[in-house]
Design a protein around this nucleic acid. Sequence first.
DNA 1: TTGCTCCTCACGTCACGTGAGGTGGC
DNA 2: TTGCTCCTCACGTCACGTGAGGTGGC
Lengths: 154, 154
Amino acid sequence: MTITTAGNAVDGRLHRIGEVAEEVGITTRTIRYYEQLGLLGPVDGRLKGTHRLYTDDDVLRLRELVRLRDLLGLTLDELAALAETSQVTFALRDRWENTTSDSERARIVRKSIPNAERQLDLVHARQRSLADFEAQLTEKLARLRTLLAELEPA
Amino acid sequence: MTITTAGNAVDGRLHRIGEVAEEVGITTRTIRYYEQLGLLGPVDGRLKGTHRLYTDDDVLRLRELVRLRDLLGLTLDELAALAETSQVTFALRDRWENTTSDSERARIVRKSIPNAERQLDLVHARQRSLADFEAQLTEKLARLRTLLAELEPA
DNA sequence: TTGCTCCTCACGTCACGTGAGGTGGC
DNA sequence: TTGCTCCTCACGTCACGTGAGGTGGC
């Protein structure tokens, strides 16, 4: 069974690094680099030299990292501080390990809320900057067109 | 006489690299690097080893470059292709050299219009991406808060 | 004259790009 | 078995950061 959400294949299968890279729109080098920096969370015991395999949640996390990087211009250090832990993704998708207690779950969720709020603040700040820029560009274009009309022979 | 526009000092004086860097919010290294790449237009005969001096128009151009870089995430190569020539700035500020003919002025203005249009397109694309991101984040925050309320003891 | 800011190398860093040479799974 | 994709070094690149040592203008 394959469910497609917004054009992206989502199934329970494990994905190879090449597929993931193409889907997310980055290179395999970037994924390996992010893993090396610890941005993808703990790498559960993969033997050195063997193929990397990724879950759908790993892909979601990678998408979020890339979006924060591209849209907000964050450094990878800042990304590490702001990005979700994969446990929160589990929480949202209702796939808790039953080894986790309610109070522990609450703690994880509570910790992730400030991160999301901070991300939203950054998005709003960018939106304001872009609105300013848009206004300036629009005005400038109008002036250029007027000027051209004056200069060009009728 | 000093005219302040939107909090930025604008006068006819020439500015030193340190002032410019602080005003624009970058380092002197970045300014020198951009000059080396030719992003600041022709460096009119400055003797090697002497101090760099900048006009108000140079500062405006630098601001535009930095904004394109930061808000749209353009590489310096892309910047070079999209940024205004200083002649257009002259045009807009009504300070044409009288050595330039009307047809020549029209040519310069005509060439700069597609650049401004392209910049506006890029701004709009960014705005759409940010709006998407904002919606996702808002929804996620709502879900996190609901989840937390369910998990926490009343 | 004394600071302070400027100058030019030039090596370091961050975030990857790009092969070189070798191993593993449908 | 044959490709194709994966693996690990490791050097290269882009956009600067950061001193080292020296010169110039209120």
